[in-house]
């Protein structure tokens, strides 16, 4: 019973719930804006990586590989604590969003590339033979077909971005985790942490199950 009072203290949970909800709101804002910015960055990077002059293509490739290798926490600390030395001072939210977007963009670029390279060459040839420009070919023929294929891995990446928002608490952003640790300190009880974990799960577990379902559906190979 003591254990229950320690970790699932209802009284403490109710008292600190508003703090957690505030944190959740910020976490969702950070997650969604980073996912969207990462998608745009990833699409642009992917186009550069596939269809630009060789020199620029190499740069895109280096970017993608570097940002897939660097630990997100290290990048976040650099953005928040190191950039001010060169005069770039970002808020905790902006720092976290920058770091998340830079990394998510690199992963997204690779996901889009795989989606585009999976489209048969004949689709490009038929488009070219009809006189479609490269842009039209991409927008009307290739990307609509790629989207279906990339939805499961993109959802997966989005889950990772939302999970990684928790790192923002180290740069003092009052996200869900930061709020929970503060509530824990105030109440001298760890129940808010358990509450935060439950809230993360409530959002992300359904998303994980969705990916599994999507993958199964797309793998069944309905053309």
């Amino acid at each position: 019973m003591d254990l229950f009072q320690t970790f699932f203290n209802l009284d403490v949970l109710v008292r600190t719930f508003p703090m957690l909800i505030e944190g959740l709101w910020l976490t969702l804002q950070l997650g969604v804006s980073s996912i969207i910015a990462g998608l745009i960055l990833g699409l642009v990077l992917c186009m550069i990586r596939l269809y630009s002059p060789a020199v620029v293509r190499v740069l895109a490739r280096i970017y993608i590989d570097v940002f897939r290798s660097i630990p997100l926490l290290v990048l976040l600390i650099i953005v928040y604590y190191a950039l001010p030395f060169v005069g770039i001072r970002l808020s905790p939210f902006a720092s976290a969003m920058t770091a998340l977007t830079l990394v998510s963009g690199a992963y997204t670029a690779e996901i889009f590339r795989a989606g585009i390279e999976a489209i048969p060459k004949g689709q490009f040839e038929a488009s070219a033979a009809l006189g479609l420009s490269h842009r039209q070919t991409m927008l009307d023929v290739i990307l609509p077909q790629s989207i279906r294929m990339v939805i499961p891995p993109l959802t997966n990446n989005s889950i990772n971005v939302v999970k990684d928002t928790a790192l923002a608490s180290v740069v003092a952003m009052p996200d869900l985790l930061k709020q929970a640790t503060q509530a824990q300190a105030l109440a001298a009880n760890p129940s808010p942490l358990i509450g935060a974990a439950a809230i993360y799960l409530a959002f992300l577990l359904p998303a994980v199950l969705l990916v599994t379902r999507l993958e199964r559906r797309f793998n069944r190979g309905n053309a």
Binding site: P120, G122, Q123, E125, A126, A128, A129, L130, G131, V141, Q145
Partner: peptide, 14 residues
Amino acid sequence: RAEVGMVFQAFNLF
């Protein structure tokens, strides 16, 4: 390309 139509062995429909 706007003046020349092409039909492929593998159809290549969208």
